[in-house]
Amino acid sequence: MHDTPRVLPDGFAVPDAGAGNPAAFIEDTLSGLRRFRLLAAACQLGIFAKCHDPVTADSISASLCLHPNLAALFLESLASQQLLEKEGERYKNTPFSDRYLNPSSPYCLQDQITLQEHLAGLWDDLGEILRKGPKMYEPEAWFSELIIPAMGANARCGILQKTVKAVTALPEFRKARLLLDIGGGHGLYTIAFCQENPSLNGVVFDLPGVLPATRKYIDYYQAERVSCTPGNFFFDPLGSGFDIIFSSSNPGGKAPALIPKIRDALNPGVFSSTSREMKTFLMFPS
């Protein structure tokens, strides 16, 4: 004979949850996801482009074809996260969102959000990935479509300025005529170096499939003295005669096997480099 399951298996004793409230813990795990989805949807819809100047929820709803009631709640939610400010019935960007989320800002981080959305999708597939193994990407698509735009956006928000300031202050920089940027990706460092030294020519060396992304930045900044060399720095020659060799945030870029190639490509001069924990190496002739 089976015992009937009891609604209160331990009588009136409340189960010990340790320090926390278990329901609150579960609810809390969703809070970051809600905030991220809110942010990502706002970027996808172009909310921060619309809200540089104050606009009403009705106006946003009409121009973006959104459900009017949901649009109003959406804008309220963005305001609750300090991504919009409400002035009467109108919403406008906060200083933060206007600087970092408005596509017309030079510091816009939407490409970083696009990358994070992609990574969020991996978490959506976590169970399947745990069973089948890591999701595999072609290197050139992964770098050119996701990583390089995100790194370029991040770089413009501070590390690019700090790096260029440090490098241009070096006495060798003004005398340099040819710079190599190994695995240069977006090429923003080289473009900035060439803008700071009118006698400098720069070469961005990266995978052939990455360089179309590089050329978009070169074209945008009209960097006529920056060229691209396709290749894999592990296997292909780097060239020679460089006065500066620069390397920043390269996958595998701190490989000892690369050191002799870098040395041989360099005039007696300077090498510099960084990585995601941002290690930059700058090599000069002696």
Binding site: K162, A166, I259, P268, E277, M278, T280, F281, M283
Partner: peptide
Amino acid sequence: QGFVVREVVALDEQSIMTIANKEN
């Protein structure tokens, strides 16, 4: 391997730059 590391610059909390010269 033929370089003199002349400076390691902390650019910010996460970013370090090594500056090295090729030896004669």
